[in-house]
Amino acid sequence: MNIANPSAARRASPIAAHLQAVIFDWAGTIVDFGSFAPTQVLVEAFAGFDIALTLDEARGPMGVGKWQHIEALAGDPAIAPRWQKRFGRAVCAEDVDTLYQAFMPLQIARVGHYSWPVPGALDMVERLRAAGLRIGSCSGYPRQVMNALLPLAEERGYTPDTAIAADDLAAGGRPGPWMALATVLELGIDDVAACVKVDDSTPGIEEGLRAGMWTVGLSASGNEVGLTFEEWQALSASEQLARTAPAEQKLRDAGAHYVIDTVADLWPVLQDIAWRRSCGERP
């Protein structure tokens, strides 16, 4: 089916009659095209301990909570030997705590530098609200970072109805379903299948699936491609396709029901989901 140009039957299906909420990730989804705020700061945090980390390496475990992200990086077979060489021992949980404590003030200070809305995101959110949908959000960012990000996002035009941080819940964060389900509770949604989870990372897609929601992966604006919007625009159509194809495959392998470039392309997908819901389908 051509989601970019759905049939008249699909277009005619009223979205608000079948969907109640869209739950967005933050970096790489709604703000921060290319997802630079978390990754660049991780490079800087490791550099503070004389551990060289490339931006691509920092991107590896994206989507999980930041403590878990740092733990995964420190234990990576390619990175762990650098810690061993620098400190003469293997990395331990206390080291992860120390790295996390160094990361946090840097992330709080720098998150606003990168977190401008993805082009088309604000228009899409406005369109969703006009259609009667609620706007939820959850993130791999911890609460301290979210508290710094939320007022900046509001100044720049984005205020979701709710925002759940990775460390808000005792059960944990992604890829578990808990942040998505907490969003359902806060918004008062009565059917998880009437929710759509939108994310650029595979843990975020898994989160939505485990919560029983429709899932939409973003292949161009997120962590996998890892370009600024200006760098993305400078590519030819064939170059863009070459960059998004692996990202799309990774998101589809994670179980995404749909994969699009950015949130600006979301509306026809929601039309299609509404039509499928009208036919009795569930995620």
Rank of each mutant, 00 (worst) to 15 (best):
M213N: 09
V22P: 10
P119F: 06
C195R: 05
S115R: 05
Q20E: 15
D191H: 08
Q271T: 05
Q249I: 00
V43T: 02
I135E: 09
D191R: 07
A131V: 00
L19Y: 01
G88S: 13
C195L: 08
N2P: 10
N2C: 01
P105I: 02
P77N: 10
R10W: 03
H113C: 09
P38A: 14
A8T: 06
A220Y: 03
R127S: 15
G136L: 10
G136H: 06
I189M: 12
P142K: 10
E281S: 13
E207R: 11
S7H: 04
Y258C: 11
G112H: 03
L122Q: 13
R134E: 12
R243T: 02
A16F: 00
L266G: 12
G48D: 06
W26M: 14
D168H: 02
A12G: 08
A90V: 02
A256E: 05
S238M: 11
R156G: 11
D261L: 12
Y141A: 11
D265Q: 09
W232Q: 09
E71Y: 06
K85T: 13
R129V: 05
V216Y: 07
I108N: 08
K197N: 11
P160D: 07
G60H: 05
L106R: 15
L73R: 09
C279K: 15
S238L: 12
D123R: 14
A237D: 15
W275V: 00
N2D: 13
H18L: 07
T202V: 13
Q107V: 03
A52P: 00
G65Y: 01
I108S: 11
R10H: 03
R11A: 12
D261W: 04
M62I: 01
A16N: 12
G136Y: 02
E126A: 15
A234I: 00
E281G: 02
A193E: 14
A58Y: 00
V41T: 15
I30M: 11
L169P: 01
L270K: 04
Q233Y: 02
A21H: 08
A102V: 01
C92V: 07
A264R: 15
D168I: 05
S139V: 01
E126V: 03
F46L: 12
P119G: 10
I79K: 11
E248H: 06
P175M: 08
A102W: 04
A52C: 06
D253I: 04
N5G: 01
A274F: 04
V263T: 11
L55Y: 05
I135F: 04
D95E: 09
F36G: 10
G204V: 04
P6E: 07
Y141L: 14
L218P: 04
G212H: 00
G157P: 01
V216I: 02
E224C: 09
D272A: 14
A254G: 11
P175E: 07
G188R: 15
R127I: 04
D199S: 11
E186M: 13
L187H: 10
A148G: 12
A254K: 10
A21D: 08
V31S: 09
R143Q: 12
A93E: 14
A274S: 13
P105L: 07
F103T: 04
R282F: 03
E57Q: 14
V64Y: 03
A166P: 03
A52N: 08
A247F: 01
C92Q: 14
